[in-house]
Simulated scan of single mutants.
Amino acid sequence: MARLAAFDMDGTLLMPDHRLGDATLATLKRLRERDITLAFATGRHALEMRQLVANLGLEAFLITGNGTRIHTFEGELLHAQDLTPQVAERVLHGEWNTTASMHVFNDRGWFTDKALPWLLVAHGMSGFEYQMADLKRLPTDEVTKICFVGDHADLEQLRLQLSDALGDSAHLCFSAFECLEVLPPGCNKGAALAVLSEHLGVSLAECMAFGDAMNDREMLSQVGHGLIMGNAMPQLISALPHLPVIGHCQSQAVSHYLSHWLDHSDLPYSPE
């Protein structure tokens, strides 16, 4: 029996319209009734996630910023990791051959210099918004991560540029087809989940996790029970071919799977 369940948000728990379905919320509450600890592991900001969890009436640990922060459900900071000022400076002031927009995150919020209202649709449940700013004037000693949003093919080329410039001083990952993130080295959801599981006295073998993108790879690969969404990035499915693939987030597949696991764990599972 799992003692800790970790969930990615977008493309996993949330439906394509970025809402949490009623069946999913009910199933998460059933897990809590079984004394299973919940953790939301997401690229979203801690400020946004704390509000969402409070609005949903759930007790859950928060792994945010793709592993840059871990908070208890009371809001206590358990772990923090930032880009070095040198890396932040290099990315913010670098000349990159890309049409992607740049987004900077620190503990005060989300900052960009290009208004993209369509990005806010994903944050409708919380009302969380970016702040317009001159990115080159932001303090470089408090940057948690930097995100580039654009066409996937363009981001693939940008990833090569950033890799050449930063080497092993940063971790690069796709959190979605249109989103490339620059994170501190060794920083990912899996590393953060390991910190959290140790804090809770739970082994990773006693954890289950759900995800859909390459930023979920480390988390899914190291838990006792990793599950991939049917709508996942093909790269993730290829990278972890031994893990089961469940249904689509549109049909609240996490709830469907967990309901079967809670009620009929002795029977084979089928996504249909």
Results as ranks from 00 to 15, higher is better:
Arg3Trp: 12
Ala6Tyr: 01
Phe7Ile: 06
Met9Ile: 05
Pro16Ser: 12
His18Met: 06
Arg19Asn: 14
Leu20Trp: 11
Asp22Glu: 15
Thr27His: 04
Leu28Ser: 04
Leu31Val: 05
Leu31Ile: 01
Thr37Tyr: 13
Phe40Tyr: 11
His45Met: 10
Arg50Phe: 01
Gln51Leu: 12
Ala54Cys: 07
Ala60His: 06
Leu62Glu: 05
Thr64Asp: 04
Gly65Ser: 10
Thr68Phe: 04
Leu78Phe: 04
Gln81Pro: 00
Pro85Glu: 13
Gln86Ile: 08
Ala88Cys: 04
Arg90Met: 11
Val91Ala: 09
Val91Ile: 11
Thr99Gln: 11
Ala100Gly: 07
Val104Asp: 04
Lys114Val: 15
Ala115Ser: 13
Leu116Arg: 14
Pro117Trp: 10
Trp118Pro: 00
Trp118Gln: 13
Glu129Asn: 12
Met132Ile: 14
Lys136Arg: 12
Glu142Gln: 13
Cys147Ile: 14
Leu160Gly: 09
Ser163Leu: 11
Leu166Gln: 00
Ala170Met: 01
Phe174Val: 08
Ser175Phe: 05
Phe177Ala: 15
Phe177Asn: 12
Cys179Tyr: 15
Glu181Leu: 03
Pro184Met: 09
Pro185Arg: 06
Asn188Cys: 14
Lys189Leu: 03
Gly190Glu: 07
Ala191Thr: 13
Val195Ala: 02
Leu200Cys: 06
Val202Tyr: 10
Met208Ala: 10
Ala213Leu: 00
His225Ser: 12
Ile237Arg: 14
Val245Gly: 06
Ile246Phe: 03
His248Leu: 09
Val254Pro: 03
Leu262Glu: 04
Leu267Asn: 07
